[in-house]
């Protein structure tokens, strides 16, 4: 993503539901408001769970980027 700096990224490929979601929650917790963090996951359940959590927790899902090999990079900004 151009113009957006990812502060911290966790590669959660190989981790299963709810692992990648837990990684995102930990990242957001340790981040500063305004920071952008990312989690890479290849887990099918996470594709729906992560955006649902971001919405529920009222942060911003900036993008879901396809990553080689069928994984997705979920990029999220901490809003509060």
């Amino acid at each position: 993503m151009e113009g957006i700096k990812i502060t911290k990224e966790v590669d959660a490929r190989g981790s299963f539901c709810p692992g990648p979601l837990m990684e995102m929650i930990r990242l957001i917790r340790s981040a500063q408001v305004g920071d952008v963090v990312a989690v890479i996951s290849a887990d099918e359940g996470t594709k729906k769970d992560l955006p649902a959590w971001i919405k529920k927790a009222k942060h911003e899902l900036i993008a879901e980027e396809p990553v080689e090999g069928g994984a997705t990079r979920f990029i999220c900004r901490k809003l509060h």
Partner: peptide
Amino acid sequence: ATIASGAAAMQ
């Protein structure tokens, strides 16, 4: 444990 994780995540 997994259900508890999902529920906890969804507050």
